[in-house]
Design a binder for these strands. Structure first.
Lengths: 241, 241
DNA sequence: CGTTATCTTGACGTACATCAAATGTCGTGG
DNA sequence: CCACGACATTTGATGTACGTCAAGATAACG
């Protein structure tokens, strides 16, 4: 199934936060119609079923990806199976951009994921012709680096309560940088995913959720839905960052 | 004291790993003499005494820096003082490159640090004129992102023993990517720095050092010097990554 | 509507933190 | 050169936040 332009996940208009995707602005704002047309010629759209691994850590990095629907978990694993989720990728996110020869992270679909796949060789040529796009990707990598540093602080120095509060606050800011903060958050990932993201166990995540609920900070209409009742207090619990 | 070219920390030759610096190749290989001359005109060289903070987290990011001597700790802090060191910067490293308006990390000199300071505004102009340099910086950010992801796995999922082993293995690989792995490692940072880097306490770091010594993995001629006696076993202890 | 995975809750264990003190190291001045 | 003081490191005794093990409760799904 080859991309026809319809399937390409780059916003062609100039609206800053179109329905297209959360981070459309950060990477795609700099892309003009000329670049877009060229990209559409080398893209392949595909679907990944929930639970499927579509990037294997350590494999030769042949392609890079742009998520156009659904949510994926990105992770590293130790030989004995211990897993660290480094982030969740959604609408508009880019994967496999590293210049290293192999993928530094694995990626699995949490729900049904739609994505566009680009051969990395072709990307290099496009980037050389359109420096503005490379600059935009640079900014994107920079944002991820800043997020990774925040997460290091969380993993190295925060308590379980602070970690979960930080997670919920960050989720309520997402997915739209330009939208109002959300009170109701959808959690497509499992408790196990959240645990592996926050460096905790499933049990501790669950206990901490109920503690936040008992304290009146949040409500849990269902395990995958959180309503933030006291945003300011929750943010304070997150540890001031 | 204004840069004269002598003080500028960019390698002008093309030798891949000159005495100039560890990561010279990753950022500076792509810089030609023309760029170099222009950079030297906007740089200011300065010295920072041990213990001095020269970048304050959250301050407006006016300049960026290139380390030309000594070692600095890069860190984030919580309001109550808990600290997470996100990395150590040495010869050739770049700081303050984020496109965000404020510094996302603080930086303190561990020993006497020499550095070149560049106004960020001037950098933008240089980068626009010399895309090869921007590409090199992109690769640099990418390397840091991969390192940050490794560190997330360490902080989220490794034991104290695995953390310290990982740290020593990584240090033995540095500072020269192209040199033989070092058996004798210098540790300019304190136990407290190592603790804040590995998400542990001073006491646990110290105990783990002595345990590695008793197990015959390392020798400690002095607290700031480590000799790796069993590199292969130590690497295995690091947890296969 | 049963089957199965996920989530929650409880009882208990442990790796690492905390508190406290001894030892070692280094710069400074006598 | 040596004595002193400040600070870093090591070592010991004890505490605790979170992990592990083990059931239930709830939700998802054919």
């Amino acid at each position: 199934m080859y991309g026809t332009g319809q399937q390409i996940a780059f916003a062609s208009g100039s609206e800053p936060c179109a329905s297209f995707g959360a981070r459309a602005d950060s990477v795609c704002a700099a892309i003009n119609d000329e670049d877009l047309a060229r990209l559409s010629r080398i893209a392949v759209a595909s679907n990944v079923a929930a639970g499927q691994t579509f990037i294997h850590e350590g494999d030769p990095a042949a392609d890079f990806f742009n998520i156009t629907g659904g949510t994926a978990r990105l992770f590293k694993q130790l030989p004995d199976g211990r897993r660290q989720i480094t982030g969740f990728a959604g609408l508009g996110d880019f994967l496999g951009l590293s210049h290293h020869g192999t993928y530094t992270l694995g990626a699995e679909a949490i729900d049904a994921v739609r994505l566009c796949r680009f051969p990395r060789g072709s990307l290099r040529a496009v980037l050389d012709d359109f420096p503005s796009m490379e600059r935009a990707l640079f900014r994107h990598a920079d944002d991820e680096l800043a997020a990774a540093q925040d997460q290091m602080l969380l993993l190295g120095r925060k308590t379980a309560l602070e970690r979960l509060a930080s997670f919920l606050v960050a989720r309520s800011a997402a997915p739209h940088p330009c939208a109002r903060r959300l009170a109701r958050i959808a959690l497509p990932m499992t408790r196990g995913d959240i645990a592996d993201y926050l460096g905790l166990t499933i049990e501790t995540v669950s206990r901490t959720f109920t503690r936040l609920k008992l304290d009146g900070m949040i409500d849990l209409p269902s395990p995958q839905e959180v309503v933030i009742l006291r945003p300011a207090k929750l943010e304070a619990m997150a540890g001031g960052l």
